[in-house]
Amino acid sequence: MSLLAVRGLRVAYGGIQAVRGIDLDIAQGELVCLIGPNGAGKSSTLRGLMGLVGHEGQVHFDGACLTGRATHEIATRGIALVPEGRGIFGRLTVAENLAMGAYSRRDHAAIRVDMAHVHALFPRLEERRDQLAGTLSGGEQQMLAIARALMGRPRLLLLDEPSMGLAPLMVRRIYETVTTVAREGVTILLVEQNAHLALRISQRAYVMESGSISLSGNSPELAMDTRIRAAYLGE
């Protein structure tokens, strides 16, 4: 029984088909990546799952049908998207951004526990808690975006290109954290252009090209696949 089951998801902007009927299955506790070239429809897939764009097809999460639901309801049901470009609230403080992550929760004691937890994961955020989030560096903003998503105690975390625009050292730190979070039991769907990184940390992978899934399988095997090596790993 998968936590997330997607059947025939289609996303179109005007007349242009960005996602052409894809199937995805993610089991509880998995770290799955969705890789593919720029413009393959990876971000549109995530936006469709969250109801941010009009879409067709079936999305089942934890047994419930999410198709046609409003974005805020989907978020409240336990799916958190860390959007491409991070989407932090620049004119709110770091602490206020984190509080927004826990917006739909009322369990104040548990929220404090989670706040301490994300501060332990990202000590930099605690140092800067009263600073406006817009003044953080790109890497710090990415940390904040992930920490904010974790504040909602998501059962499924969707990460859209967390490495984008970051220095290699920062990318490594972000990925270490993603691995840590996955090990703590959070189910993750990771979208990446950087196939090398994504295949290294994930258990399974989907390869997306021109709006369709062209390949899928276990990440270590895909990493050895000659087609993948030629197309995405530059070999």
Binding site: A70, T71, A75, G87, E96, A99, R148
Partner: peptide, 23 residues
């Protein structure tokens, strides 16, 4: 909490929805 959600919505309606805010 309401005011924080108002300010967040003012900055980005889309991201506010991702936080579970009914815009």
């Amino acid at each position: 909490r309401l005011g924080r959600a108002m300010r967040a919505t003012a900055q980005s309606r889309e991201v506010a929805q991702l936080m579970g805010v009914n815009v």
